[in-house]
């Protein structure tokens, strides 16, 4: 018997879901301050922080605006802005 496709759950399918729409505040990274320590990337519950060549970059497609990154950044390189939609 074939399984109906409706019963199939694919791995990591949540990546389709734009949780960035939930956000009321947006974290803003000051790349001149960022020391690329990766703390924000480790602590982000939604895996939104990527450490690039010139500093942390926020993935706004998923970022829910919890601002844990801002709070935990050891050099205060992250500030918040009110999200305007």
């Amino acid at each position: 018997m074939d399984l109906l496709l409706g019963g199939v759950c694919k791995a990591g399918e949540s990546k389709r879901l734009e949780t960035g729409k939930w956000r009321s505040f947006r974290p803003v990274v000051d790349r001149n301050r960022c020391i690329k320590c990766g703390k924000c990337a480790d602590l982000c519950p939604d895996s939104c922080m990527e450490i690039k060549e010139d500093g942390a970059e926020v993935n706004l497609y998923y970022c829910k605006g919890c601002l844990i990154c801002m709070r935990e950044c050891p050099v205060k390189a992250i500030t918040k802005e009110v999200e305007e939609k």
Partner: peptide, 25 residues
């Protein structure tokens, strides 16, 4: 449908936890 990123975590983003959920971390 293309994903927005190639986030390489075994727990993928887009999950429905509240913002700032300790369990998700």
């Amino acid at each position: 449908m293309t994903m927005q990123t190639e986030v390489k975590e075994l727990h993928a983003p887009g999950h429905r936890a509240c913002p700032g959920c300790g369990c998700a971390i």
